[in-house]
Amino acid sequence: KLVATPNPAFMTKDELTSYKYVTTYNNFYEFGTDKSDPAAYAHTLQTRPWTVSIEGLVKKPVTLDIDALLKLAPMEERIYRMRCVEGWSMVIPWDGYSLSKLLNYVQPLGSAKYVEFISLADKKQMPGLGDNIIDWPYREGLRLDEAMNPLTLLTFGLYGEMLPKQNGAPVRIVVPWKYGFKSAKSIVKIRLTEEMPKTSWGRIAPREYGFYSNVNPLVDHPRWSQATERRIGDSKGIFAPKIKTEMFNGYGDQVASMYAGMDLKKLY
């Protein structure tokens, strides 16, 4: 159980995706490439003890224990849409607080421009590391202003429960206006840098997965259109038509200003 106060600013009319689907249909390659693999194999993940070190261009580099992190700021419940780059989406009640609270705590230096997230990579706990699809550990990144945006959630739970292991326990990022792979799971290190971090998917297929990877119905993935998405567990049944994908996954009011003047077709 995780006590979290619903934040009325982040509620939505969308119907929630069931707990069952949120916790059995996951991309978490550390446990296998099939979407049922994480639920089947993540039980070997040791989520305690767990520490996260925040380092790089900060005034106060620190290594925090998970319990200290849980207490750093009041826990909020926020309902976010989650849009996977593969063309499906969910609506999930997450529990956490804005990443900015943690970043303010360590005080980024003026030279810091980007934030890199590094996930755990331990062969003993993660059978998927045997595949060298990704050059482990998994790395993701945000521009500092994106990381400081109030929407960016440092997440510890969902549906009022501690994060299930397959969803990135014990702590992950959730960036709701970007494709799901930007939201790194099971984070052990956060690094502030001046250079744009090299992300895992960006290294594998730069043409398919850009650094920004904002949800954008106008920029197709090279192998499929991003104009529409299939809502998982759609109450209209399994043959329900796809729904229209919204720019910035519908969070344009909160985030569009960060990209003013940028050509988002080039900087996808």
């Binding site: 249909y25 499906w88 299939r230 567990g233 399994i238």
Partner: peptide
């Protein structure tokens, strides 16, 4: 699997 609602979270896929 369709009748027993067991076609995973993404039945079409």
């Amino acid at each position: 699997l369709g009748l027993t609602d067991d076609l995973s979270a993404n039945p079409i896929e």
